[in-house]
Amino acid sequence: MKYLKHFLGITFFTLTIGAIYGYNLKAKESQTTALLTTMEKPAKQYVKIALLLDTSNSMDGLINQAKAQLWDIVNEFTHAKCGNDTRPSLKIALYEYGNDNLSSNEGYIRQVIGFSNDLDEISEKLFSLTTNGGEEYCGQVIQTSLKQLDWGKNADDLKMIFIAGNEPFTQGKLNYKDAASQAKEKDVIVNTIFCGNYQQGISTMWKNGAAITGGEYMAIDHNRQVVHIDTPYDDIIIQLNSKLNNTYISYGSLGRQKKMLQSAQDNNAAEMEAAVAVKRSVSKSSRLYKNSQWDLVDAVEDDESVLEEIKEKDLPTELQGKSEEEIKNYVKEKKSERKKIQEQIQELNAKREAFIAKNQKEEKGELENALLSAIKTQASKKNYKWD
Rank of each mutant, 00 (worst) to 15 (best):
G172V: 07
G172T: 08
K173Q: 12
K173C: 08
K173A: 13
L174Q: 05
L174A: 01
L174R: 00
N175Q: 12
N175R: 10
Y176N: 06
Y176K: 05
K177N: 08
K177V: 11
D178M: 10
D178E: 15
D178A: 11
A179C: 09
A180L: 03
A180C: 12
S181D: 12
S181P: 07
S181A: 15
S181M: 10
S181L: 12
Q182S: 13
Q182G: 01
Q182I: 07
Q182Y: 10
Q182L: 14
A183Y: 00
A183F: 08
K184F: 04
K184G: 03
K184W: 08
K184R: 09
K184M: 05
K184T: 06
E185L: 10
E185Q: 13
K186C: 07
K186V: 07
K186S: 11
K186D: 09
D187V: 08
D187G: 01
V188E: 06
V188I: 14
V188N: 02
V188K: 01
I189K: 03
V190L: 06
V190S: 04
T192L: 08
T192V: 11
T192A: 09
T192N: 05
I193R: 05
I193C: 02
I193S: 03
I193P: 00
F194C: 04
F194Y: 15
F194H: 02
C195R: 03
C195S: 02
C195F: 04
G196N: 07
G196Y: 03
N197Y: 12
N197E: 15
N197Q: 14
N197D: 15
Y198M: 11
Y198A: 10
Y198F: 15
Y198W: 11
Q199A: 11
Q199F: 10
Q200L: 14
Q200V: 13
Q200W: 09
G201P: 06
G201D: 05
G201M: 00
G201R: 00
G201C: 05
G201F: 02
I202E: 11
I202T: 10
I202P: 03
S203Y: 13
S203W: 11
S203L: 14
T204W: 09
T204L: 09
T204N: 11
T204F: 01
M205N: 15
M205P: 01
M205K: 15
M205D: 12
W206A: 00
W206E: 04
K207M: 09
N208G: 12
N208Q: 15
N208S: 15
N208K: 15
N208V: 13
N208A: 15
G209P: 04
A211G: 06
A211M: 11
I212W: 06
I212V: 15
I212L: 10
I212P: 00
I212S: 03
T213P: 08
G214E: 03
G214C: 08
G214T: 07
G214D: 04
G215W: 03
E216M: 11
E216V: 07
Y217S: 07
Y217N: 01
Y217Q: 06
M218C: 09
A219K: 04
I220E: 02
I220C: 02
I220K: 00
D221A: 10
D221L: 07
H222A: 12
H222W: 09
H222T: 02
H222I: 07
R224K: 15
R224M: 12
R224I: 09
Q225D: 12
Q225L: 12
Q225K: 15
Q225N: 13
V227G: 10
